[in-house]
Design a protein around this nucleic acid. Structure first.
Lengths: 211, 211
DNA sequence: GTCTATAATTGGATAGAC
DNA sequence: GTCTATCCAATTATAGAC
């Protein structure tokens, strides 16, 4: 079995050594990042010797890259916008805004983001992987939805691609920075829900049909 | 002289060994980050021995923290909004949006951001420093300006603090991510200027005075 | 203060037995 | 495949001479 195949089913209850190593590597890399994580720590966490780790995986670099790519895929679920065709734009955008905020502010996603940003110089392709499994797909899907709303005459969005980026950018705002740096929301006095609600309302005013 | 005092005037043409070490440390840390930078490399770049580095600075941690805090201050210049009182809101926001984009997308600022994000677990206070010298002050200043525009009856911004966050969030959008990951603008087909112009127009529509 | 030389430790990777 | 033991390189930090 190839390494990729092993990784692909790493979520299963496979209890072979390879799976144990992958599980351990995921935990250690996510907790410590690439530099601070050691192959000793991974071997210990997996309950095997270091030599066994090297029998299954070529080296630290490849093991890391495999884990990170898998994590990007694991968090790439896009909130469905399919049966929202029946909902009003306001309902749909509120739901989308909330799911988006929950996703990008989740601690595991912030950890992943932090690690990929940190290791961009050493692993340039991981940044691209994260961008393409995450933001790129989300933007494309929202742009599509905005185009449909425009076609139906419910909104007036002339540059759906730009508008989608604006929508996500507003909701993320500086929230992700504060979470990344562990600056509490209380200190700022704005909640996530406030930011989402206010941004959806503002977005709808800006892109309402014009007379 | 204290370390802080030395650092405070590190931009001057002070050519003592302490200043040479600080200059070298800045270059090496900015290029390699904390983990990959070595005290050997810093000593070599400064043209002194490693023992001399340790004679002036307590250790790698403190030298790093000092350099990063200094870099945050160095990049904390806020575009003036003072004599824009005479400009139209559109002119003022366009100018602000452009300066903001130039600032946060500058390679040195992206490097600083990447390094602070990477080292947040080890140096939690640096994230706070970056947030407070950067986004926090920019948001406060824009919120102030939006409040004044509302007072003068030129706009209708009821939550200036939230609106300021929306403005910066829209302009940054996913641009900073793409720059961070070296994904070319050409690949996406949207320029910075387009993003700024479209966002300012959209912002003004959303916060125009209502009838 | 400054240098050379050297601890002391860590961590990636492997040899060789089983 | 798996383990123990080890190699080798890199790195932080310091001792001791000048």
């Amino acid at each position: 079995m190839t390494q990729a195949a092993v990784i692909a089913r790493s979520e299963a209850q496979e209890s072979g050594k390879a799976a144990k190593i992958l599980d351990a590597a995921r935990r250690v890399f996510m907790a410590d990042g690439y530099g601070a994580a050691s192959m000793d720590a991974i071997a210990k966490a997996a309950g095997v010797s270091k030599a066994t780790v090297y029998a299954h995986f070529a080296g630290k670099d490849q093991l890391f890259a495999a884990i990170i790519a898998e994590r990007c895929r694991a968090h790439s679920a896009i909130p469905e916008l399919e049966d929202v065709e029946r909902a009003t734009p306001e309902e749909a955008l509120l739901a989308l805004g909330r799911s988006f905020a929950s996703l990008v502010l989740a601690p595991e996603v912030l950890d992943l983001y932090r690690i990929v940003v940190a290791e961009t110089p050493r692993f340039p392709e991981l940044g691209r992987t994260l961008y393409e499994t995450g933001p790129k797909r989300g933007i494309a899907r929202l742009a599509d939805y905005l185009q449909r709303l425009t076609d139906r005459g419910l909104l007036d969005v002339r540059e759906p691609d730009i508008a989608a980026r604006q929508f996500f950018g507003m909701i993320r705002s500086d929230l992700y920075l504060r979470r990344l740096f562990h600056i509490s929301d209380a200190e700022v006095g704005i909640t996530v829900e406030q930011m989402v609600a206010s941004s959806v309302a503002m977005f709808l005013r800006a892109y309402a049909r014009r007379a």
